[in-house]
Amino acid sequence: MKIIAVIPARYASTRFPAKLMQDLGGKAVIVRTYEAAVKTGLFDDVFVVTDSDIIYDEVVRNGGKAIMSKKEHESGSDRIAEAVEHMDVDIVVNVQGDEPFINKEPLADVLQVFKSDFARETDLASLMMHITDEEDINNPNNVKVVVDQKNFALYFSRSVIPYPRNKEAGVRYFKHIGIYAFRKHALLDFYNLPMQKLEASEKLEQLRYLEYGKKIKMVETSHAGIGIDTPEDLEKARKLL
């Protein structure tokens, strides 16, 4: 089973323009993320895929592997799918470019899903974290997921799911952590299938997979990741480094 990591990297960012090129201990954030992915030792290869000459040149200049997107893309999945379409790979892991402090353990747990999936039930695997704070549960920026008895995703939403009509039912709430591992065929299906209404409404690309009948296995983790979305996050990352 050949497993690769792909890091989609856009130069533009609404909240923090050019965040991936910001200095983090003498190297750009995207270079730190690339090196962290390689250092896990989990992947047969690691690539950055980008629409930016600036990011491409920075990764290559630091000894990394980068691929230029040929088309404009609406999502990270689309960008990754174009990059791997003609590669001989089995599993593709989407690593977020703004997370230079990659934790090996949850990535290994996600990959174990496929290594133990002898019936090939799973098309994608991803992470979820138990949340209890009401503000976190109600925050639309926190994507929630509900799962079945085998931890396959039933639905993702920015809304509170399930709705707590009976607060004594003992429901656990889970926040989706956006690390994905795909079987290559599932990723290419996504790339070639049009967006449907649920994805368009919630602006969540994982809903396209569910709408077309793909099975997403969720793995519970306690590692939320450390992303750099704002200048304040960058300052925290510099202190942490």
Rank of each mutant, 00 (worst) to 15 (best):
V84N: 04
V92Q: 07
E85D: 13
N103Q: 15
F101T: 09
V84T: 11
P100I: 04
Q96L: 08
V110R: 04
G97I: 13
V92M: 08
V113F: 04
P100H: 06
D88F: 08
L107H: 14
D88I: 08
H86F: 13
A83F: 04
Q112M: 09
G97E: 06
I102H: 04
A108F: 03
D88Q: 15
P106H: 06
F101K: 00
D90E: 14
V84L: 11
L107E: 05
K104G: 02
P106F: 04
F101H: 07
H86E: 14
P106I: 15
I102M: 01
I102S: 11
E105H: 10
D88S: 12
F114D: 00
V110C: 06
P106A: 11
D90V: 07
E105A: 14
F101I: 12
V113Q: 00
M87R: 05
I91V: 14
V113H: 05
D109R: 02
N94C: 05
F101N: 04
A108V: 01
Q96P: 10
V93K: 03
D109K: 12
V113L: 03
V89L: 09
F114R: 01
K104W: 01
I102E: 07
I102G: 03
Q112L: 11
Q112W: 00
K104C: 02
Q96C: 08
D90A: 14
H86L: 12
V95R: 08
I91C: 10
P100Q: 05
V93A: 12
K104P: 07
E85F: 04
M87C: 06
D109E: 14
E82S: 10
V89N: 10
D90H: 08
V113A: 01
I91D: 06
V92R: 07
K104H: 06
I91T: 12
V89T: 15
V110L: 10
A83Y: 03
V92Y: 02
F101M: 05
N94M: 12
A83E: 10
D90L: 03
Q96M: 05
F101D: 00
V84M: 09
V110D: 01
Q96W: 00
E82Q: 11
